[in-house]
Design a protein around this nucleic acid. Structure first.
Lengths: 182, 182
DNA sequence: ACAAATAACTTTAAGCTTGAAGTTTTTCGA
DNA sequence: TCGAAAAACTTCAAGCTTAAAGTTATTTGT
């Protein structure tokens, strides 16, 4: 493991590391080591937080992150939201939403109606029960995140937020270039 | 696959946003808005990259990220690696590895042997075929990441790497505090 | 008006992932 | 030594996720 002060980030995409080893560094073709290290570290942070959030949602609320996210989308839409819109906002496939909605409707957290003006469209909304439950979860969630990120100074937080904005522009720019449908 | 909106970061954990809305900002209890925004942005970057990597692994190599990661772990271990060690390094459950190993063994990418000294232990290693395949994928992967992160200046990359190190310390510190087993 | 295209889901098949429970081996302690 | 405990998986049930194919409903082009 390279000389990093914090210990090994090995998760998904971890092919990164082999550039670190003295063995491979010699033959590095375009030397993408810096980017790989960055990606690996980003992924590690993200995975650590996500794993912890999942764990606590399960243990403290017997729920899951996807369900929480779906309810979060609905929280601000008091009139409900079209299924396709939820899918886009959550960046997941429509089929996925269908399944989640089924479960959340069964458990009484959300309601689902067919649009009166377009019978293809499904409108989903939090039920009062769902809203109450979500508010409890959201408050707890905010606390967890605050704890996990709390070791960062205000300044570091601001810098990180800014650098991540730049990174996002880089990513989106790169994705846009290759003629993938927007 | 739904075309996902790139602009708004709404993915997993997105309860964040409701602090942004004028509605909620008034009653923010401990005001964890800064941390939530940071988390949301981090997650967005990570998700965008991961989704793209998965897509390309599938389209260009008919493979998956978990398989790639598993092979990446083996790449540097020419003598093979114990299954439990792989599980720890990849930060996933042992049962998960069992399944992945089965598939990769079937396809001839890895070999699997029972340790001669301890018959509980499974040792897995890349086959020559697996190694060749992995090297192709790894080279492509490094290029994808370089593209995605390439819009970042060297300076920004360095700053981001540093801030992420601080963040990771914050996270790990926070996780450590609550007496969860390491 | 009406057929073709488009939209908005839903269904399906396949793969990933986990926590919990189960199996086989080793190790440890009295 | 020998039985209990621990280790290292494996199996299982459930849930998430996606791409692709299928349905039903609405729009469009002519």
């Amino acid at each position: 493991m390279a000389e990093q002060n914090i210990d090994e980030p090995k998760a998904a995409g971890a092919a990164a590391e082999w550039i670190d080893g003295e063995t491979k560094v010699l033959e590095a073709p375009g030397d993408h080591g810096a980017e790989l290290r960055l990606w690996l570290r980003l992924l590690t942070c993200s995975t650590l937080v996500e794993t912890e959030v999942r764990r606590r949602l399960r243990e403290e609320f017997d729920s899951t992150l996807p369900r929480f996210d779906l309810m979060a989308q609905l929280e601000r839409a008091s009139d409900g939201m079209v299924l396709g819109e939820v899918s886009k906002r959550m960046m997941v496939s429509p089929g996925n939403i269908t399944v989640l909605v089924e479960r959340l409707a069964e458990s009484g957290h959300i309601s689902r109606t067919t649009s009166p003006t377009d019978r293809r469209v499904q409108i989903i909304a939090l039920t009062p029960f769902g809203r109450t439950e979500f508010e409890k979860m959201a408050a707890a969630h905010a606390g967890w995140i605050a704890d996990l990120f709390g070791g960062l100074s205000t300044k570091d937080g601001a810098v990180l937020l800014d650098e991540l904005a730049k990174l996002k522009r880089s990513i989106v720019g790169s994705l846009g270039k290759a003629g993938r449908p927007a």
